[in-house]
Design a protein around this nucleic acid. Structure first.
Length: 286
RNA sequence: GCCAGGAUAGCCAAGGUGGUCACGGCGCGCGACUGAAAAUCGUGAGAUCUCAGUUCGACUCUGAGUCCUGGCA
């Protein structure tokens, strides 16, 4: 059995640093599993720590354009390739990042993964109301609608995805999902904060640092280059708030406060999602 | 000091010829989430400035007080 180490957990817990330590001490290579660090040009606000990683190889960094959508399926494909490459050279793959959906997809697979996004369809239904989307889905497949929980029934993104599945299921039968081969001995480490205070402290400190490092300048440059708040890569905490500031919708202080708040809320959501995975071994920080 | 306006949850804020559980938004708590996930969504707990009066009943009307905002001095 070959070892593979996963380092995930809440934002701002120091995952990258821990991953680097492992990579150095156990001769490993990193695979990024942070849905934002996938993107080129997003550096300061999403915290690519290039200094920390000078002596370690990292995969899946800066591989997609912020205007392009990058899915958990895309991640899985790239990650499987990297894992195989790393392991074939007898090094240890170390996956690091807080995007649990990506990990979930990689480890446990997704049954409907062969039905790919239909952008024309998504575009079309974007403007539909919840009620209209629900009607549409019920018309196509009462079954799929019934399987949705209370929350998903009012979630436009998920309703649209289900409509997508319903309209394409006839043409493409889902094959067996591919996922991480069982030959690996997987160790998942999750980092989480001891309490709310330590989380808030860490986030505040990190935001202040990123502002000092040029967060505002980074956003200005992206806007100048033609990126907008609607681009997949920029639908990201930090960028959204600073863009609102540049648009005159928020004051500087409001933008910074909201950035911090959203980051804290995100950390909470991450843990809510991850704690259901009993394979994660938790370590507290803060 | 005078005139005018205002005081509703941690913050912003609607309301009604006086009558069951006072509209929302943000934040906060909890949760969902199988090709958008730093996304998207569900759900819960929080309030009528103080005192007195009118009334069967006042957050809503009257009076006094306190505080805030603008104008005049």
């Amino acid at each position: 059995m070959k070892d593979i180490i996963i380092i995930t957990g809440q934002t701002a817990t120091g995952k990258t640093k821990l991953a680097r330590d492992y990579a150095l001490s156990r001769d490993g290579e990193l695979i990024n599993c942070d849905s934002r660090q996938i993107y080129k040009h997003l550096t300061i606000i999403c915290g690519k720590d290039l200094n920390l990683l000078q002596d370690v190889r990292i995969w899946l960094y800066d591989i997609s354009d912020p205007k392009k959508y990058f899915s958990s399926y895309d991640f899985k494909k790239h990650a499987l390739f990297a894992i195989e490459d790393i392991a074939s050279r007898n090094k240890i793959p170390i996956i690091v990042g807080g995007t649990y959906l990506y990990l979930k997809h990689l480890f446990y697979g997704i049954e409907t993964e062969t039905i790919k996004p239909d952008w024309k369809l998504r575009k079309k239904f974007e403007q539909y109301s919840i009620v209209e989307l629900q009607k549409m889905l019920k018309k196509l497949s009462v079954q799929l609608f019934k399987q949705l929980n209370q929350s998903d029934r009012k979630n436009p993104q998920r309703l649209i995805r289900k409509i997508e599945l319903a309209t394409h299921s006839k043409a493409q039968k889902p094959k067996k999902p591919s996922q991480l081969p069982k030959v690996f001995n997987v160790k998942i480490i999750g980092l989480r904060f001891k309490n709310k205070e330590s989380l808030r402290n860490a986030v505040e400190k990190r935001v202040a640092e990123r502002i000092k490092n040029g967060a505002f300048e980074e956003v200005a440059k992206l806007l100048e280059a033609g990126y907008t708040k609607r681009d997949p890569g920029l639908k990201t905490i930090g960028y959204q708030q600073l863009i609102a500031y540049f648009d005159g919708k928020l004051t500087k202080d409001e933008a910074i406060d909201q950035w911090i708040t959203k980051e804290i809320q995100y950390a909470k959501r991450q843990y809510t999602f991850m704690k259901k995975d009993l394979n994660i071994k938790w370590r507290e920080v803060g």
